[in-house]
Each structure stands twice: as C-alpha cells, then as structure tokens.
Nucleic acid binder design. Structure first.
Lengths: 129, 129
DNA sequence: ACTTAAGTAGTAATCATTACTAGTTAGGAG
DNA sequence: CTCCTAACTAGTAATGATTACTACTTAAGT
C-alpha cells in the first residue's frame, strides 16, 4: 500500500476519535484539510484499511457502516434507544473448547439501554406522576 | 400483528432451515407456495418480525442481511474464506460487572476458517508438493 | 530524470432496501 | 351473517449507501 495524504488523513481521523464515524462523516472531516477529496477515495481507503487490519468495520442496523480504530482490542455496546455505540474495554476471555472450526477472532456486540437514556426515562416517569 | 399467509410462510421458511437466508432467498422460496408474493412484502414482514423478536437479523459484510430463527439462543461463526455462517450452540456465559450501561442481550460473532476450507487448503498444499 | 503501478477526483452505475399507490382482507361490532 | 375499517398485499418507483469507471496524478524504485 503506497503512502498518500488522503489515506494518512483518514486513518488519523479514525485514530483520534472516540466516536465511530460513518464513511460520510469521515469524508466531511477530511474536507476541512483536503477540500477536494472525493467520497470514493474515502470508501476505497476504508476498504483497504479494513482488509489490512488497520481499522475495524462495524455493521450497524442503521443502514450504513461505521469505522473504529484498532488501537485497543475491544467490544461494542449499542444503545437500542439512541443507537449510540460505545467501546467496551473490559477484557473478556472466552474458551471455546472442542469446537471444530478454527476461530481466529471474535467480537461481542452488547445491546441494552445506555445510562443517558435510562436517566431520561426515569426523569420522565417522575415528572409525569 | 394480523395473521396472513405471507407472514406465516416466511416465518415457517426461517424456522425450518439450518441456513441463514437473505431476504431474496426467502422470497424465492416463498414463490414456490405463493407465486404472486412481492419482495416488498417479504421485507416488510421480516422487519416486523425482527422488531417483534420473532427472528434475528444478522448483519454480514457481504452487503445484505441474513435472517435466523430464535428457537435457540445462540451465537454465530462466520468463515472468512467462504462467508458461510454457522450457529454456535455452545452456551457462553459472560459476567460484565461494574458496567454502567444496562445490558439486555449480547451476541458474539466468531471469525475464522471453517473446517471445510481448512481441509481444502491442506489438500491443495499436499497436491502441489 | 524516467517509468509505471498505484492512487485520486469526479461522476455514473449498482443494488439492497424502503416508500408509495391502489386494491384486498382479517376480524371485530352490530 | 353483513358491514366496516385498519392492517395487509402486489406491483412499481424511489432512495441512498456503496462501488465501478475514466482520465489524470503521483509515490517511489531504477
């Protein structure tokens, strides 16, 4: 993979963010530095970096993918109310003995309600009573 | 949710399969029984059943979703070579103490190489030597 | 400096999924 | 058993995330 400013910028944006951006959101942030960058370039580099194991693709139920850095191996929590994705840094060890396929990696997607949505629900309840 | 032959048929196909069909594959199988069924009807019913917790949507990296029954709670293994998705029935218990979001469920996606692809790789190696 | 394979911008195409429309039906009320 | 109506359906058009294509540019080895 040859060096390019576009690729470096995209990786930089992903690595220096705690959010999980979509391709388009990355594109918008790239434009601040490289106004002529093309959305296709963003997609092409994202795909390459995913294959290259430099970043991770998160499949969401929103209809578009999001991207995450690989600085720390981690899992994800998604809030079923507000769709926010958070990283789960707690180390989780599974042992899958006697399984007949070779497992090279695994990712866990936790579902639930985040503490913000939880608090909103509770406030709403008390106000109405 | 009102009863309809279309919905019953779709659920039946998903429940009586060990594969993980795409919406279009379900549509094709429906056509054998109901030749006039519409692809939109399949999508609409799948979405309703997912929201209703009758079936599960599997987000894949292929570009389209697959659907699975909920008869047994289970996780998934995906072969990174042939993209085959297998059910993982081994019960896996995680304890996630001191986590500040309310976790209602989780699913684990295992990645690796399935035994079929593994065997093919080995055969190819020996033949060439 | 020259060469060229890999990268890029800009735009068109793809295709899984959703939205829309006019007609149909399940199933409760009278 | 009819009537009513909200929910459902078939068929088709639209959407929108992603990919493909084309002509131009550039990194980096010789």
């Amino acid at each position: 993979m040859r060096k390019s400013n576009q690729k470096d910028l995209i990786l930089d944006i992903i690595n220096h963010s705690t959010n999980h951006y979509t391709a388009y959101e990355i594109y918008e942030r790239c434009q601040i530095v490289l106004p002529n960058i093309s959305l296709g370039t963003v997609y092409r580099n994202l795909n390459k970096m995913v294959m290259n194991n430099e970043i991770e693709r998160i499949k969401t139920t929103e209809g578009y993918d999001r991207y995450d850095n690989k600085i720390k191996a981690h899992h994800h929590f998604i809030c079923d109310k507000c769709q926010k994705i958070e990283d789960v840094f707690e180390p989780i060890v599974l042992n899958l003995n006697d399984y007949d396929n070779e497992v090279t990696s695994y990712s866990i997607m936790f579902h639930g309600i985040c503490k913000d949505c939880k608090r909103k629900e509770e406030n709403y309840g008390t106000k109405r009573k």
